[in-house]
Write a protein that binds this DNA or RNA. Structure first.
Lengths: 254, 254
DNA sequence: AACACCGCGATTGTACACAATGGAAGGTGG
DNA sequence: CCACCTTCCATTGTGTACAATCGCGGTGTT
């Protein structure tokens, strides 16, 4: 029953002993990462007790983490029925992408105004990491890092509500990509990220926004959202019916 | 020690007794309302035990409600120090308003496309309620209803992420208005709301967006955010220092 | 007299025990 | 043989007890 995932009990805590409040974040981060890297498939049931045992904490902590994940839209919390990894429908995916275009445009404009040299440097570093995991063939990490790039960009926009919203949107986008990505093409071409940074550094708002919008187009076009999504869509439809303890075994009968 | 606030124990619950899952929402809604109607001043400490006694539920429920309020930005959750009513700084207020302009523009455009006749009717009804509480002199309810109008409009836009974001923004805006509103002028002139509905019903996107942007301007202009906010700002700065058990008594010495 | 240290009280953080809900399997009647 | 109902079990929802942490006041020392 226990897959090994991460044995991580509470670590010895190299730093201050007082910050016990980090346990939530550890659990949250690990589940989040697992979902984005598709080690947890959409529709998988997230039992509180099982997770508690895995991470070595009580259900209280797990529950908080799940609640937070639910608020960001990557986990679906059904009353009295437990939590499952969200499986966004095509319509939900469309809504997320619409909202993202909106937010990304605003963030880009603001980043052109406010981004510091240091932040631009950090952004370039992230693109490097991204390229590394791509060449390493680590698809999951690639998706995650690509998301973190957009989140970092949001921070450069210096608007707290937008950052928070962007975090939620990026999370859901990553989930959607993991679920719907068509080919083996790269998810977020890091070239585009580099060009974007250049435009921002040049303080060219028009160009930057333009690049960002094209970037969004490219992400869209890599997904099977439009018509041909029948197969994946079907999977999404059924995935929340199977109480998939053991993913990969097709239980539903056609 | 016990101010009377709301004696409300758990109400007899006209409906089913089984749906105890609503308790969260009840507590959440009441605290939220109390904050928006300024019965709870910014900076007021929200003790879990006290709230639990007031509402007749255990700390577990209170904690969830507070966590949710914190996520929406109307409550500040300090680790090991408890929760206080948020007191947005001028800078934070600016960021919220910037984000709102963005979102309101998008929502308006989408509402023009998607609003149904029924939704428009509901919106008109809400404006009526708003006018009523204004004429009744119930400022708190007015602020709340005005916020609910904008939230309802977001629902007409039919985009779940935007609705969720708008809820958070409206909450924070209401708090900001409660904290910074200058005169006794009406917060959200319901005339503008009516005109907005008309424009949406006429499917005139340009006009509707224009009206909405002017509406935002008017809200801005009623606040003391710009320069003269010294006094209120000072209050905001100190308010999170006083552990105000008994609000209304100025403890800090100028 | 002022600073620093130590212990105390109050409040939050965590874990656990019990109650309640929902689904599933088994039994019975048509 | 199928459908419906009943019973049971697994899992979540809630309350509460205990432990940890933080701020505060007293006391001793320089």
């Amino acid at each position: 029953m226990n897959e090994q995932l991460q044995p991580l009990k509470k670590q010895p805590r190299a730093g201050k002993a007082g910050r016990s409040g980090t346990q939530d974040d550890i659990v949250y981060a690990h589940i989040f990462e697992a979902i984005l890297e598709q080690r947890l498939a959409p529709g998988t049931k997230l039992s509180e007790e099982a997770l508690g045992e895995i991470f070595g904490v009580s259900r209280t902590i797990i529950r908080r983490a799940l609640s937070r994940l639910a608020h960001e839209g990557v986990v679906l919390l059904r009353p009295n029925r437990g939590a499952v990894v969200a499986s966004p429908s095509v319509e939900e995916a469309r809504q997320v992408f619409l909202a993202r275009r909106l937010v990304e445009r605003a963030i880009t404009e603001l980043a052109v105004q406010h981004a510091t040299a240091e932040q631009l440097l950090e952004l370039r570093q992230m693109v490097n990491d991204e390229r590394d995991s791509f060449s390493r063939g680590d698809r999951g990490a690639g998706i995650r890092l690509s998301g973190e790039f957009h989140l970092k960009l949001a921070e450069a926009a210096k608007n707290a509500p937008l950052i928070s919203f962007q975090r939620s949107l990026v999370s859901q986008t990553s989930l959607i990509i993991a679920q719907y990505e068509s080919g083996n093409r790269s998810h977020c071409s890091y070239d585009e990220h580099t060009q974007l940074i250049d435009a921002i550094e040049a303080r060219d708002a028009t160009l930057a926004v333009d690049l960002m919008m094209h970037h969004m187009d490219h992400i869209d076009s890599k997904l099977n959202l439009d018509e041909e999504s029948a197969s994946d869509d079907l999977h999404a439809v059924f995935s929340h019916l199977l109480q998939t303890k053991k993913p990969g075994r097709p239980v539903a009968k056609l």
